[in-house]
Amino acid sequence: MNKLLNFYGRFAPSFTAAGFIARGLPLRPIGRAFSGQTWLVTGATGGIGKSIAIGAAKRGATVYVVGRNGEALAALARDHGIKPLQFDLDKVGDNVRLAEEVAAGVGKLDVLVNNVGRLEHVYKTSPDGFESTYALNLLGHYALTERLIARGALKDGLVINMASGGLYNSALSLRRLEQTPERYSGVMAYAAHKRAQIALSDKWTAQGVRSYTMHPGWVATDGVRTALPDLNKHLGWILRSGAQGADTALWLAARRPAPQAGALWFDRAPRSAHAYPHSQTPEVEPAAIFAKLEADVAKAGGV
């Protein structure tokens, strides 16, 4: 408990609403509007994803949102003019089908936000047989984005990967991506998935698709209340709003700053992705992560 409270105490001034306000972000304009743009936001029926989708739509974008909850998708369509797409994104096949549907029916995307994600404390498997959070947090993002790139749907577009300060807990790791039931740590799995997102951003940028990995701060969402009850208990009163968590995503899309290799974007600036020495030395090269993801997409029949 002391270790946890020390962690909260160290980062609370920056990651909560207090940090957002102290940096003066409410008074600083995001930038140009998104009229004529087409966005795809995953995991957008609640939390940060919903706030990003609504924020982009209010600024003029045509926004497609992806989720499993049909009622929540319908509400977004009814209340905000957002276009719903119902897919189960912990299935590789659904990510591939989503990419094909978007490429064929929508055409080019200006912005893809890989937002969907989950932290679990009990080992579960996805419909394809992978550890469930690995399937949702990383493998699905890879399958969706790679297929969109292959189909030319992200030419001149950009990708925003939604990460977390949780990645400070892990170096780039292969062994933690998909753990076994016997020694499962959902926190470390989540950290490894979020760390790997930075490697993916660098990969896609090198392929010509401008990509960023961002940290939204600590945001009051249903996911936080469920997965991190201690954080919610001690700091719930000062957690960020959904709009504050969405701010950097909207700013990145509006300003399109030059990507920086290895950076974690937070509160409109590239920050170090390392808070502790132990995360600075990778256990594997990024190529090993990419090879596993590619092999697992093929294993699930998503080639």
Results as ranks from 00 to 15, higher is better:
5 L>Y: 04
6 N>G: 00
14 S>P: 00
23 R>K: 12
25 L>W: 07
25 L>M: 04
26 P>W: 01
27 L>M: 09
28 R>T: 14
28 R>S: 10
31 G>W: 01
37 Q>G: 04
38 T>I: 08
40 L>P: 12
43 G>Y: 13
50 K>H: 14
50 K>I: 11
50 K>G: 11
53 A>W: 07
54 I>G: 08
54 I>L: 05
58 K>M: 11
63 V>A: 02
63 V>Y: 11
63 V>Q: 10
67 G>T: 05
67 G>E: 06
68 R>S: 03
69 N>G: 03
71 E>I: 15
72 A>Y: 09
73 L>M: 06
74 A>N: 15
77 A>P: 05
80 H>P: 13
81 G>S: 01
81 G>M: 03
81 G>W: 01
82 I>E: 05
84 P>F: 10
85 L>G: 01
86 Q>H: 13
88 D>N: 04
89 L>W: 00
89 L>P: 05
93 G>V: 06
96 V>F: 03
97 R>S: 08
98 L>A: 03
98 L>W: 04
102 V>M: 12
105 G>K: 14
107 G>V: 08
110 D>M: 08
111 V>D: 09
112 L>I: 14
116 V>R: 10
116 V>M: 04
117 G>K: 09
120 E>D: 15
121 H>G: 06
122 V>N: 13
123 Y>I: 13
125 T>C: 00
127 P>S: 11
130 F>Y: 15
144 L>P: 12
145 T>L: 04
145 T>S: 07
150 A>P: 11
151 R>L: 15
155 K>Q: 15
156 D>N: 10
160 I>G: 07
162 M>E: 14
164 S>A: 12
164 S>M: 11
166 G>H: 04
169 N>A: 15
173 S>D: 05
176 R>W: 01
178 E>G: 01
179 Q>A: 11
186 G>S: 05
190 Y>T: 06
192 A>V: 04
193 H>D: 13
194 K>S: 03
194 K>I: 04
199 A>C: 05
199 A>H: 00
200 L>P: 01
205 T>Q: 01
208 G>L: 00
212 Y>C: 05
214 M>W: 01
215 H>R: 02
216 P>L: 02
218 W>M: 09
219 V>W: 12
219 V>G: 05
222 D>T: 14
222 D>W: 05
223 G>A: 09
225 R>M: 01
227 A>H: 11
227 A>R: 09
229 P>T: 03
230 D>P: 09
234 H>Y: 08
236 G>S: 03
245 G>I: 06
245 G>T: 08
247 D>I: 15
248 T>H: 10
249 A>L: 13
251 W>K: 14
253 A>V: 14
253 A>L: 10
254 A>M: 04
257 P>M: 01
257 P>S: 06
267 D>L: 08
270 P>C: 05
271 R>D: 07
274 H>E: 15
275 A>R: 06
276 Y>V: 10
277 P>F: 12
277 P>R: 13
279 S>W: 06
279 S>A: 07
279 S>V: 03
281 T>D: 04
283 E>R: 10
283 E>Y: 15
286 P>C: 02
287 A>L: 03
287 A>S: 10
297 V>L: 03
298 A>C: 00
300 A>H: 08
302 G>A: 00
302 G>T: 07
303 V>L: 01
